[in-house]
């Protein structure tokens, strides 16, 4: 066999390999590993055990919100209210928990009452979003944009009613442990929370009838309705799940910062939606997996951490982050073209 023959045989094989990688659901993970490897040569500190644990810790709350968002995206909706749910739940929960005259202070049930308050805020706002979207046929974009604006303001008002300061502190150590605690030699406790939420979400999406209904509604709601899928109920519960996930993320963030603050999570909306979409969840509905969302969140968290480690001026940070996300989006577009062509 001559060298020309070897090249002729290996070229299609290599092309097939690239195509397989491009179409693989692990593409974003591969890109993350590649990016990490390049960054390792520039900021070696990114590969230390402490930084890796930091990346894991930073991922956890964002991942919980993104998991909730995945449910809504699968039914071709969008939940813009997630940041305001995080903020509202944070101040309401903190007002119950705080040692400075909290509603449950001294009852012995502070932590349970506080956590229930967090979840209740998420569930109520999620229910409101779901009802408006399904009962009044309002676009989820408008409904959740409105709730985002309303509850962002309400969180600030609620804080001013409860304290002279701009945030609510003095939270019980037991609660702070949810956001800061560790187990099994340094793994964040929030990982345990995320494993439960992520495991449940994966189970619902892949093993239950409701999960199949979600995809059916996202792909074609009319066809789903004709097939007997309770479309309104399916969409309604997707918003409730998203609200509850944002509230759980709020517990993790609030515990981490030891403070209930009305501006908590106000800047993470793009990261939440971006992570899900970069992972492969479709904005047009009917497509998405928890695993993909995990990859998207990991990708964005690694980028953030690397840029933080580099300590560059803000203009460079925006330019680099924007370029990287754009590159990922272009690769995703190429991937779809290849997929459509077969």
């Amino acid at each position: 066999m001559t060298s020309t023959d070897v090249t002729a045989v290996s070229k299609p094989r290599a092309q097939a390999g690239w195509k397989r990688l491009l179409l693989s659901e692990y593409l974003v993970l591969v890109l993350t590993v590649f990016y990490f490897a390049v960054m390792w040569t520039i900021v070696p500190e990114i590969a230390t055990a402490d930084t890796l644990l930091d990346i894991l810790r930073a991922m956890m709350p964002l991942l919980v919100v993104a998991i909730g968002q995945t449910f809504v995206l699968i039914v071709a909706g969008i939940d813009l209210s997630a940041p305001s749910i995080i903020a509202m739940a944070s101040v309401v929960g903190a007002s119950v928990l705080t040692g400075d005259g909290g509603y449950a202070n001294g009852t012995g049930f502070e932590i349970i009452a506080g956590i229930l308050a967090f979840i209740a805020v998420g569930a109520v706002i999620g229910t409101f979003n779901g009802l408006c979207t399904t009962r009044f046929n309002m676009p989820s974009f408008i409904v959740t944009l409105t709730t985002m604006m309303f509850f962002s303001g309400a969180a600030i008002w609620y804080t001013t009613v409860h304290t002279d300061a701009s945030s609510i502190g003095n939270l019980p150590r037991g609660f702070i442990g949810i956001g800061q605690g560790t187990f099994f030699g340094g793994l964040p406790f929030s990982l345990f929370v995320v494993l439960v939420v992520g495991g449940a979400a994966h189970f619902i999406l892949s093993r239950t009838v409701y999960g199949r209904w979600l995809y059916a509604v996202g792909l074609n709601p009319r066809a789903a309705a004709v097939s007997g899928v309770p479309v309104r109920r399916v969409i309604f519960w997707a918003f409730v799940i998203s609200g509850v996930c944002a509230a759980i993320a709020s517990i993790l963030y609030t515990g981490r910062l030891e403070t209930g603050t009305p501006v908590l999570g106000q800047r993470i909306l793009l990261d939440v939606i971006g992570a899900a979409v970069i992972g492969g969840v479709s904005l047009f509905g009917g497509k998405g997996k928890i695993l993909w969302t995990i990859f998207g969140v990991l990708f964005l968290t690694v980028i953030d951490k690397s840029l933080q480690l580099m300590g560059l001026p803000i203009a460079s940070v925006f330019a680099i982050k924007g370029s990287i996300i754009l590159a990922a989006a272009v690769i995703d577009a190429v991937r779809h073209r290849v997929l459509v062509r077969g």
Partner: peptide, 21 residues
């Protein structure tokens, strides 16, 4: 340098990153 854009959680992450550096 790092700018948190008024995000308390991000600023905490930035402090951790600087400790890492």
């Amino acid at each position: 340098e790092n700018i948190s854009d008024f995000d308390d959680n991000k600023q905490f992450e930035q402090v951790k990153a600087m400790i890492g550096r």
